[in-house]
Every structure is written in C-alpha cells, then in structure tokens.
C-alpha cells in the first residue's frame, strides 16, 4: 500500500497570546512543533504499512525550516519525505494549500492519503477534504478506528457529534484522523540516525506543475483583514462563607442569570 501522510509545522498555540494593551501578538519563545493530530496520522500510516506492507511518504508545504517535522516523521519510521517549498507558495489559505498538496500527491501516486483532523494554528480542518475534492477521491473525516484493510477497500469508524458510524470506503481515498485512533510511537534510535542522514528532496511549484494562479496568495480566496484580542471575560467572583453558603449563593446567582 502506497501511503502519503500530510504533516504541518505549527506554533505551539498554547503559548501564543495577544497583549491586550497593544493588540499585538506575544510570541517570544513560542516553539514550533509538529501539529499534534499529524503525529496520529503518521502513526496510522506506519501501522497500516506494518499490517499490509508498502511505503509511507510524508509531505509538508512550508518554509525551509518546516523540514524539521519531516525529520521527526522519519525518526518515527516513515520511508520518504518531500518538502514543498517555494516563495510562490507563501500566503496560501486552505484552498491554495490543498491544491498544492494535491498536486504533489498526484505526482507521487498513492492508495491512501492520511491527514490530521485539523491543524492547531488555524483549526480549520479543511485541507484534507479539499484535497480529496481536487483529487476526485472519496474521503472520510474524524476516523477513530481502522477495522480492516484490503487492496480496494477499508472499513473504518467515523466519529460524529452524537454517535459513530462504521463505513466501508473504496480506495484510493483520503482520511483525516482523530487522536483516539492510536498512540504515536516515540522515535527509535535507528529512526533518529536515519532522520539525521536523510536527504530530503525539495519541490517547487514547477516540480509539481502547479499553476501560478492557484498557489500562494494568488490562489487564496480568503484574506485575513485583522486580528485582535478575544474580549475579556466579564466579572469574576470567588464565593466565600461555609460550603453551605457558597453553594446557596452559587445557585441563587445562576438563577438570577437564568442559567438554571
């Protein structure tokens, strides 16, 4: 089975803040990490390979330093990695990102593409399904379990808001995965060595035959108009008194606010 996993380098969002006074981002010392969901996507690819054989290739689109996450994936055991990097890719929204990744996937060839459920910087969850549309293949989002695989079909479980569904999916296809699916393996020593030595090919727009008007800023229908700090939370109050009194005040307050 020929598997492509899409991984993204993201800032560790829990450390990103806005200064309420200046409306500017505080990001001193915010580290870059592999998008946490994508670790599960890599693990899913490796497990499938262990089961049915084949090859796992990771791809990312990003600036040259995004190579770090590819090396991380190699240290976990993937076979190949490709970095899609080109100044012309800059400014891509999900549409242009999905277009670019799908062009690379076409060039590589595949039976299955695995993405994370969403990237934690933008939280859009759009790139996977959009890629599937560009490639004209079926997709299933929020995969929480892979029950069986053959050459032409997979049976998987999709996590919905109020239930889960067992689904038969025809290959080639794309899935996006949730954390519940698996536990990502730590890098192995051999993997770390391989990661250090690996020569990671870089593809630009011409290498994947991407059309200029569909990549980067030009290919992006959405624009960020501005950013601002979230509105501050209203009043805060610590309730005092005995436990009895605390609970009574709480219930009264919640009634007053029509919460009960």
């Amino acid at each position: 089975m020929n598997i492509i996993v899409c991984v993204k380098q993201v800032p560790d969002v829990t450390e990103v803040r806005i200064d309420p006074k200046t409306n500017t981002l505080i990001r001193e010392g915010v580290p870059s990490i592999m998008n946490p969901y994508d670790l599960h996507a890599v693990e899913a690819g490796l497990q499938l390979k262990d089961k049915v054989g084949g090859k796992v290739t990771v791809i990312t689109m990003g600036p040259p330093q995004a190579e770090e996450v590819l090396r991380e994936a190699i240290s976990m055991g993937v076979d190949d990695a490709i970095l899609l990097t080109d100044k012309r890719f800059a400014g891509a929204d999900t549409w242009a990102t999905a277009y670019t990744l799908s062009k690379a996937a076409k060039k590589l060839g595949f039976d299955l593409i695995i993405c994370g459920k969403q990237a934690i910087d933008g939280d859009t969850a759009q790139v996977g399904p959009e890629m599937a549309e560009f490639l004209d293949i079926p997709h299933v989002s929020y995969v929480r379990s892979i029950d069986s695989v053959s050459d032409s079909e997979m049976v998987i479980e999709r996590l919905m808001d109020d239930c889960y569904e067992k689904i038969a999916l025809t290959l080639p296809a794309l899935i996006t995965v949730v954390k519940e699916l698996n536990t990502p393996r730590p890098p192995s020593i051999r993997g770390k060595m391989a990661a250090k030595k690996a020569n990671i090919p870089r593809w630009n727009a011409d290498d994947i035959e991407a059309e200029e008007e569909n990549i980067g800023l030009k290919g992006s229908p959405t624009m960020v108009k501005n950013i601002f700090a979230p509105p501050p939370r209203g009043e805060r109050r610590i309730l005092d008194g005995t436990p009895e009194e605390q609970v009574e005040t709480l219930i009264r307050e919640l009634r007053r606010l029509r919460c009960l």
Partner: peptide, 14 residues
C-alpha cells in the same frame, strides 16, 4: 478564533 482561541481574526473573501 485562531491559535486555540488566544487570538481572534476577521476573515473576508473579497
């Protein structure tokens, strides 16, 4: 919200 709700963004598709 973006960046886990730490910032808000206004997006347009002009």
């Amino acid at each position: 919200p973006a960046f886990g709700g730490n910032i808000m963004a206004t997006i347009v598709s002009p």
